[in-house]
């Protein structure tokens, strides 16, 4: 027993040392990806932490565009010309649609910052993501996946997270058409499209997002947020007059044309 207890004692000492220094987890973040929404950012100490992994789930495939746009806008809000790396598989274009640069320009982002990386299969996606997060100098790395992603187990997720932490890059995992599963992410969100605030003539308004915080390593989860994207200010805002949508719907049922309701 004496032989085996020697390494055991060594390991205990190492654990004690790690615990004393706080361990690698306690390394402070170098910044935040802020939304520009005061209350939201304040709740998380400044926004989503840089150098960590954040997961955005769109449980329903139809909300994929909302989740993707939220992640992209969060990254493209950062000043400067640092590229935004977007990794997806080649079949994603057929499933959820191709990323449309003029649409990003319409949202106020700069599509020239986007670097699109399309891989043949999820295995290569994970391999490329590992390289991408280890490369400093990106606004964020968005990894878009569809459905259950069995290759992204806890080990693979941990590897990605460690890579992001060491290089100081932010990893935004976009999980479309997937149910939330345990992972090592700093925050985990479920994003659903919210009814927009109608414009004149009952036209659909600015993008609106319903966010549900499913998990947060730094505090309590379960909060709900409803944010609008204000492209002129390049910031997320409270949904203006969010209650106004219900009466409109009731009136619309009577007058199906709806144009005169506004």
């Amino acid at each position: 027993m004496r032989e085996s207890s020697q390494p055991l004692a060594g390991l205990r000492q190492r654990i004690a040392r790690l615990a004393a220094t706080g361990g690698p987890e306690s390394r402070p973040a170098e910044g935040w990806l802020a939304t520009g929404h005061g209350a939201f950012d304040a709740a998380f100490g400044g926004g989503l932490m840089v150098g960590r992994c954040h997961e955005f789930f769109a449980a329903d495939a139809l909300d994929g565009a909302s989740a993707a746009a939220f992640a992209a806008l969060l990254a493209l809000r950062t000043p400067g010309q640092t590229p935004l790396l977007w990794l997806r598989t080649v079949d994603a274009g057929r499933r959820t649609g191709h990323i449309y640069a003029p649409g990003i320009a319409e949202l106020g982002g700069d599509p020239g910052r986007l670097l699109l990386i399309e891989t043949a299969d999820p295995k290569m996606l994970l391999a490329c993501a590992n390289d991408a997060v280890r490369c400093a100098g990106s606004a964020a790395v968005i990894v878009e996946s569809w459905g259950k992603f069995p290759l992204l187990d806890l080990t693979a997720g941990r590897r990605l997270t460690l890579g992001a932490r060491d290089a100081g890059t932010t990893l935004l995992m976009l999980r479309l058409n997937a149910a939330p599963t345990p992972s090592v992410a700093e925050t985990r969100w479920n994003i659903v499209a919210a009814p927009s605030h109608a414009l004149a003539a009952d036209a659909p308004g600015a993008p609106a997002f319903d966010l549900e915080l499913l998990r947060w390593r730094g505090g309590p989860a379960g909060t709900h947020w409803r944010l609008d994207w204000d492209k002129d200010e390049q910031a997320f805002r409270d949904t203006a007059l969010s209650g106004a949508v219900l009466p409109l719907a009731a009136r619309r049922a009577i007058h199906p044309l709806g144009a005169e309701a506004a």
């Binding site: 746009a69 649609g97 191709h98 449309y100 003029p102 649409g103 320009a105 599509p111 670097l115 002129d232």
Partner: peptide, 27 residues
């Protein structure tokens, strides 16, 4: 990206308007 294409100017959106082009496009 390996050909390092020069950056092109993108149309500037009209202020106050909602986005008129989609985020994802089916082609």
């Amino acid at each position: 990206a390996i050909d390092a294409p020069p950056p092109t100017p993108w149309p500037v959106p009209e202020p106050g308007e909602p986005p008129l082009r989609p985020f994802y496009l089916f082609d």
